[in-house]
Computed example of a mutant assay.
Amino acid sequence: MSRSDQYDCYFLTYTGITLPLQLVSPLEKSETENRNTYFAANLDDQGRVVRVRKMVYGEIELEHRYGYRDEGSLEWAEIVDDEEEVQRLEFNADGQRA
């Protein structure tokens, strides 16, 4: 996967093991230019992460896409690897995998 999109925000890393990823250590766009690895994210109009990409040496190594229910809970997640294979996970209203 190649790098060609615009992003709303950038982060150094994430914390935790649950989805959606909890991105931490915000970066300015200018701080990504000399960094080998960082996370680039897009937000929806409510400020929730709808897409996050792990960027390594200018290439997309991993991508997560998220969909939310009207009340804000995570409904699904798609994980795309560097070979563009997609794994879709569904979640119930309690946040458990369906």
Results as ranks from 00 to 15, higher is better:
G67S: 09
Y38M: 01
I17C: 13
E28W: 10
E75W: 11
D70K: 07
V49W: 00
Y38Q: 03
L23W: 06
W76I: 04
E61Y: 15
D45N: 09
L74A: 01
S73M: 11
D8T: 06
E59P: 05
Y57H: 14
N92R: 09
G47E: 00
M1L: 13
E71F: 09
A98L: 15
I60K: 11
Q22E: 14
Y14V: 06
Y14G: 03
N36T: 15
R88F: 06
P26S: 08
F11H: 10
A93W: 11
V50N: 02
R97Q: 11
R35H: 03
F91Y: 15
H64M: 06
F91Q: 05
K54M: 09
N42K: 07
N42E: 02
F91M: 04
V50Y: 01
L23N: 04
M55P: 01
A77G: 07
I60Q: 11
L23V: 08
L27S: 01
G47R: 01
A98K: 15
F11V: 11
Y10C: 04
R88M: 12
H64R: 01
N42V: 04
S30W: 10
E59H: 15
E78D: 09
E85K: 14
S4F: 04
E78A: 10
F39P: 00
E63P: 04
R65Y: 01
Q22D: 13
V24D: 03
W76G: 00
L12E: 15
R88H: 13
Y66D: 02
S25E: 12
E85P: 06
R3W: 06
L89W: 12
Y7G: 03
L27Q: 02
L21V: 13
L23A: 02
Y14T: 05
F39Y: 12
R53Y: 04
G95P: 06
T15M: 05
G67F: 04
A41I: 00
R97P: 09
E33F: 09
Y66R: 03
L27W: 02
V49K: 03
R48N: 03
I60D: 12
C9I: 11
E83R: 14
R53I: 06
F91A: 03
R69V: 00
E90G: 11
A41W: 01
T18A: 14
K54L: 13
V86R: 14
S4C: 05
T15I: 11
P26Y: 10
R51M: 07
E84F: 11
G95C: 10
G72S: 00
D8K: 10
L74F: 02
I79C: 09
R51C: 04
G67R: 13
Y7N: 05
S4H: 11
D45T: 10
S73T: 08
D5S: 12
R48D: 00
K29P: 08
L23T: 06
E61P: 06
K54W: 08
D44P: 03
R88V: 13
P20A: 11
C9L: 12
R53Q: 15
S30D: 14
D81M: 07
P20W: 04
V86F: 06
N36R: 14
P26C: 05
Q46E: 10
G47N: 02
R69P: 00
V56R: 11
R88Q: 08
E31F: 06
D8N: 13
K29A: 06
